[in-house]
Simulated assay, not measured.
Amino acid sequence: MNHRTPAATVGVVGGGQLGRMMGEAAGPLGIELLVSDPTPDCPAAPIVREQIVGEFDDYDAIRELAERADVLTFEIELADPDEMARVGEETDTPVHPDPDTLRTIQDKLVQNRALAETGVPLPAFRRVDDADDLRDAGEELGWPLMLKAREGGYDGRGNRPVDAPEEIDEALDEIGGPALAEELVDFERELAIMGAVGDGETDAYPVTETIQREEILRESVAPARIDDAVRDRARKVAFDVLDLLDGRGVYGIELFETDDGDILVNEIAPRPHNSGHWTIEGTRCSQFEQHLRAVLGWPLGDTALRSPAVTANLLGDVESPRPAELVGTDSILETPEASLHWYGKREVRPLRKMGHVTLADDEHGRDALLSRARELVDDVTFE
């Protein structure tokens, strides 16, 4: 296939920070991005060619995207797979990843069943529709366990540890709908792999170590501080997962490394992922450029490591929502190996992801990079 510039137009359902960084990656390739998002002047709006204001299931907005684009994709799991499939068929516009893949991943129970049926390792799980189901799950899986909303959960929302039967009613009220109970894994560390599926190609970035508190990603370390055997097992599991997914694109695969060195799948995201933000500075082709290459059917880019990299998220440190104003960034800007990424969100909320800082350097060890990243993030605050 011969590629020409201006190369293509990509329509993206969702215009949050992932859409913004996708737009930043699109420009050098001559790709134009159109996004649809319910928030006027969404984070991606200043970067992409145009925003169409519409809900994630707005047929008219998605159809307009498809009519003006060469391919349709999404950057958020709240995108409606039924409307995207319908619009894709009506306009003859390819949709990647496949809406069936999104439909599977949107429901954690459906996702886990699909993985289990093909032998992909994951924590033991049970369906939970009511208090009796959760009580039975606790007896089978043991207390404590993890209760997850089947749909809509992200950044720690929709996940709730349940320590004992006495917490059942409170936990179900907090989740507020159909749920999934999983055994609480005693893990050594959490890992992630960004995989890429192109036109007849499959590749993956180096295994990343993810550090989370309160179910929210705080830092990522790449490559992960693991031995070769664990790395090889993680990559094998990731490629097995990619074999199950339909449609081109980048996929975030979150994993547990158990105390015994085994690898279990935690969750899958059919899009670029926070745990892969380090690839902007740490690899030759970022996950965002890779996603665009993949959905367009272009050759995949190089996933090789340029240098070790650590990313630390900038999270809202406020007690209640307020206009977003970040102060104290001088130390970040004065650090040669540090890169500041600001997502352009107008409002800061408690623990909301507002940006990130990446340190990429092959002269210092990963422990030193992580320590320095934490120091830099501690210097900033929201007023």
Rank of each mutant, 00 (worst) to 15 (best):
V87H: 11
E90N: 08
D92H: 15
A66L: 03
E64V: 03
A79L: 00
A85S: 11
P94I: 06
L72Y: 01
P94F: 11
D80L: 01
Y59P: 05
F74D: 04
P81L: 08
A79N: 03
V87N: 10
R86D: 00
H96I: 01
E50M: 07
A85E: 13
D58K: 12
M84V: 00
I76D: 13
I76L: 15
E67I: 02
A79F: 02
T91Q: 05
E50A: 11
D60M: 14
E67L: 15
E75P: 12
E90W: 05
D92M: 08
E89N: 09
D57K: 07
V53W: 03
V95E: 09
D58E: 06
D80Y: 02
A45W: 05
V87I: 11
A66N: 09
E64R: 15
P46A: 10
V48M: 01
T93D: 03
I76E: 08
C42S: 14
D98F: 00
D70G: 10
R63S: 10
D82C: 05
T91W: 09
I62Q: 14
M84A: 01
T73R: 03
F74L: 11
E90P: 03
E90T: 01
L65T: 04
E75G: 10
E67Y: 09
I47S: 04
E50H: 13
